[in-house]
Write a protein that binds this DNA or RNA. Structure first.
Lengths: 243, 243
DNA sequence: TAAGAGAAGTTGGACGTCCAATGTTTCTCC
DNA sequence: GGAGAAACATTGGACGTCCAACTTCTCTTA
C-alpha cells in the first residue's frame, strides 16, 4: 500500500493545483478543458480525467457535464452534533428551505450490524424507515432508522412522526431516553444510496451510525445516516475542562 | 449531477455485492481475479477494476498488489471525540503500540483558512508542526498544528511537547483554555498527505479542522487532522437532556 | 423576428491494449 | 536438501480510441 508519489497522476494533480494558485483562480473560475490540459502536459485524456475526478472528490473543483470544469464552492450547511436540532432546523438556519421525503417504511429483516446494535436475535424483522432530507429541493442527508421491538410494543402513532427522532421517541415512549452513541467515518458512497443523494458512486461522504439508548441502557433505535459532505459539514463544540 | 444507475459500472458493482452475499464470503476470503470476473461478465478489465477500486473505497473489499482481492476487515481503532484523550492513549486502548513521528516544525506563511481561524492578518508567519501518529508502525493520523502569535509570546519550551495539544497548552500557557470547535467532513485524501498515511490518493478520509479557544475567546491553535478512516472511526457519546 | 436545426465544444462512459510491479509457486542446479 | 532462478498470476498505471450526453452558440428558414 506504499505510494509512489511520482506517478503521472500525481504530477498532473500537482500541476493543476499549481495552475490554480499561479493564475489566482477563484471560485467559479473555469479551468481549461480536459483535452486542452492533456495536450499541454502530453498525457492521455484518461489520465487527466482521473486527476480532475480526484480533485473534485477533494472538493477543490467541480466538473459540469457539457460545460466545463470550475473551481469549487466551499461547504455550505453546517450541522452541530452536540445539540439535538432537528435536521429541518439546522437546514433552515443555514438559509435553505428544508424538506423531507419518505422513501419507504415497513418491516425488514435486520442485518448483522443492526442486530448487533439493537441486541436482537438474527432474522428479526424490524420497522425501518428510509428518508431523505432536502435543502432547497437538493437532497443532502439520507437516513435509515431501525426500531427495536420495544418501540413496537409501545404502539406509537407513526403519523405523528415529525422527522426528529429524539423528540418523537421522548414524547411517545414510556421509558425516557438516556444517550446517543454516534460512530463517524468517511466512506465512498454506495451505489444504491448515491442515486438518492444524486452523487456519483464513489464520492466521499460522512457515514454516521447512531444508537439511541433508554435509561435502562436498552437500545431503542439504530440509524444509518449519510451526509453529503460536499455541501455540509459537522460542527462540534466542546468545553475544555482540565483537571 | 443526476445519476444513471444502470451504467455498466453499477451493474458490475451490484453483481459483485451479490456474489459476496450469495457465496457467503467472509472477511479475508478471496474474490476471483479482475481478469476472471471481467471475462465472466463480458466487460473490460478497466471497468471491472474501477468497480473493485470503488468497492475498496467503500470499505467492502481490499485489493493487494500481486496477490488478489479479498473481503475487507472492519475498522479497528476507535476515537472518542468528546474526551480529550491523547492519540497515544486511545491507540493503546485499542490494543496497538502508539508512536509519534514529527515530519517538520518551523514557521510557515499561513493560508487564508488558517488566518481566518486564528484571526491573524494575511501573510503572517506561524509556527507549524506536522506530525504523524502511528499504531503498530502503521500511520493512522496526520496532524498539522498552527499556533497563534499569543503562543509564541508565551515562550514555551517546545521540548516538553508530548503530543497532547490541550494538556501541553493548558499546562504551559498563561490564560486557561476554554473550548474546542471541530468541523468534520469527508474528503478524498490529497496527494501530498496520501504518502504519509500510505493510502492511495483519492481514498475517503475523515478531515477534522479544530480550533482551540482561550477563555477570552481568542483562538490559540488551529489543527488540520486527517484520520485514516479505513482503520479507525470517531466515537461520540452524548447524554440526552429533553426539556 | 423567432423558432428550430445544426455545429462545436465539453464532460461521461467504456473498451482494448500494453507493460510495470509484486507475490507465489515451481523448477533447476549445485 | 537448499538456494536461487524462472515462470506464472495478480494488481497497478497509462495510453489511445470511440461514441454518448449535455450545453452553448450560430446559422438557416419560415
Amino acid at each position: 500500500m506504499v505510494i509512489n508519489t511520482s506517478t503521472r497522476l500525481h504530477q498532473v494533480k500537482a500541476y493543476l493545483l499549481n495552475y490554480i494558485s499561479q493564475n489566482q483562480l477563484k471560485r467559479n473560475d473555469q479551468l481549461p478543458s480536459e483535452a486542452a490540459i492533456a495536450k499541454t502536459l502530453g498525457v492521455s485524456r484518461n489520465t487527466l480525467r482521473e486527476a480532475y475526478i480526484s480533485l473534485e472528490n477533494e472538493g477543490i473543483i467541480v466538473r459540469r457535464h457539457g460545460i466545463g470544469t470550475f473551481v469549487a464552492h466551499p461547504p455550505v450547511i453546517r450541522d452541530s452534533l452536540n445539540e439535538f436540532l432537528p435536521f429541518a432546523k439546522l437546514i433552515q438556519d443555514s438559509g435553505y428551505q428544508p424538506n423531507f421525503q419518505t422513501l419507504s417504511m415497513g418491516f425488514v429483516p435486520a442485518s448483522i450490524e443492526v442486530n448487533d446494535a439493537l441486541n436482537t436475535p438474527p432474522s428479526t424483522e424490524l420497522r425501518c424507515i428510509k428518508r431523505l432530507v432536502l435543502a432547497d429541493q437538493q437532497p443532502v442527508i439520507y437516513v435509515e432508522d431501525y426500531f427495536a421491538p420495544v418501540v413496537e410494543e409501545a404502539a406509537l402513532n407513526w403519523d405523528d412522526f415529525n422527522g426528529n427522532m429524539v423528540h418523537f421517541l421522548a414524547a411517545s415512549l414510556g421509558s425516557p431516553l438516556h444517550q446517543i452513541q454516534s460512530r463517524i467515518r468517511a466512506a465512498a458512497i454506495s451505489p444504491d444510496i448515491s442515486q438518492y443523494l444524486e452523487l456519483e458512486a464513489g464520492t466521499p461522504i460522512l457515514s454516521v451510525r447512531s444508537t439511541i439508548y433508554a435509561v435502562d441502557n436498552r437500545p431503542v433505535t439504530y440509524s444509518k445516516i449519510c451526509f453529503n459532505s460536499t455541501i455540509m459539514e459537522l460542527d462540534i463544540v466542546r468545553i475544555i475542562r482540565t483537571k
